[in-house]
Design a protein around this nucleic acid. Structure first.
Lengths: 217, 217
DNA sequence: ATAAAATGTTAGATGCCTCTAATATTTTAA
DNA sequence: TTAAAATATTAGAGGCATCTAACATTTTAT
């Protein structure tokens, strides 16, 4: 178990390297809100610990050991989020910041118990998959709401959780995980989308919002 | 909000100064398992922050500000312990170490919710009082099992929680908070005590164990 | 192909928290 | 009452995590 700071670096590297498999120093610095040299010196330390593969002027990659640690933290984060919603009755928009802290709690027993109480759940309240205790992740094939043709109906399965304000926005629009929506109109001009929702109301989403909503047909 | 380390110092100073109102550097060093100079330099920092009153070669005292912070941490610790037992179904002997971590979670909402779910509880699973959100503590007049005369019957209200092994010991003997016990015999020779318990069984406790059990007549 | 822009690294400093070794003060006991 | 023991402090160093300023490399665009 590394320090809290170390865990946050590992987690961010994992998140940012999802698509390309690597991260740039500047991306990481931006994400963690530190300056470039801070990232640089942390990379040296993590490389010594064999958590990242790092060569000067090259992208940063997690080693297998680093990935394993990242997935363990993500598992704890997502279990915590679901626990906060299901057991403690908090709103999905307010659990992220608390889970950011709970994910660093070192207690197998605590998380084993949460897992039991929630019946080994597969997805967190934002629809993100929860890795199992071996770090195995049940990936879903994802389609963004933005890629759906007019007339199609789909079910919201997940949202990309970046900031509380985004979830507040969805709450205000009345959208939740599991809701069925039909694409009424796609505006070419600004990329916005009009949906028909179970509430019978028409909902307008900007491109920026729609691209962060994942659906299944 | 100070650092985790700072919070642990404050909490330990509070605990150790309960009786006399002050702590010695060496006591604190022992409790926190650090060397004397570490305590010394931390005291200087805490004094600058007005959390402790500290003069060289004199005992350490918490300021009002320091006490308030200590009580806030203790409140979180004890709420967490009760939550772990009542809501999560963990044993009273295994919650201390988890609560040591949860007490540092910074989220008024999280603790407000725990307090609600537990119905603003007054005591933790070990019988220790939970300070209210203003730091006010509902102190009980306490009698130790060791001070009870033969023939008297009393109810266990609290135990002094120092180590898991002590609670394991009580579990093995079948003793719990709320149990009624009658003093059958007090041995002058070694200070041990024989109890009659609701289970009808006779239980022998050594002086060392009995003095850490608090009762009400 | 080279100059400018973007990105990354090194050097050196700071604060936090810890340590060991050396020194100082207070307490205790002869 | 003074020497020894116990307790506390200072000096100086090291690791972690951060920063600014200066320098190096890579990418890009003319």
């Amino acid at each position: 178990m590394g320090s809290l700071t170390e865990e946050n670096y590992i987690k961010s590297i994992y998140a940012l390297s999802q698509s390309t498999g690597e991260v740039y120093v500047s991306e990481l610095a931006k994400k963690l809100d530190v300056k470039l040299p801070s990232v640089n010196s942390m990379m040296k330390r993590l490389a010594i610990k064999k958590l990242v593969a790092y060569a000067p002027y090259k992208g940063i990659k997690l080693t297998e050991k680093g990935k394993k640690e990242a997935l363990a933290i993500i598992r704890k984060h997502r279990l915590a989020e679901l626990f906060l919603v299901k057991v403690m009755g908090l709103g999905w928009e307010e659990v992220h910041d608390i889970a950011e802290q709970l994910e660093h709690v070192n207690s197998p027993r605590f998380y084993e118990r949460i897992d039991e109480l929630l019946n080994s759940p597969k997805f967190d309240p934002h629809g993100e998959p929860i890795p199992d205790s071996n770090g195995k992740i049940h990936t879903q094939q994802r389609t963004s709401l933005i890629d759906l043709a007019e007339g199609l109906t789909a079910t919201i399965t997940a949202v990309t959780e970046d900031e509380k304000s985004f979830l507040d926005h969805l709450n205000a629009k009345g959208l939740q995980i599991g809701d069925a929506v039909t694409i009424m109109k796609r505006e070419m001009f600004d990329g916005s989308i009009t949906l028909q929702h179970k509430s019978k109301k028409e909902i307008l989403l900007t491109h920026q919002v729609a691209e962060r909503i994942w659906v299944e047909l």
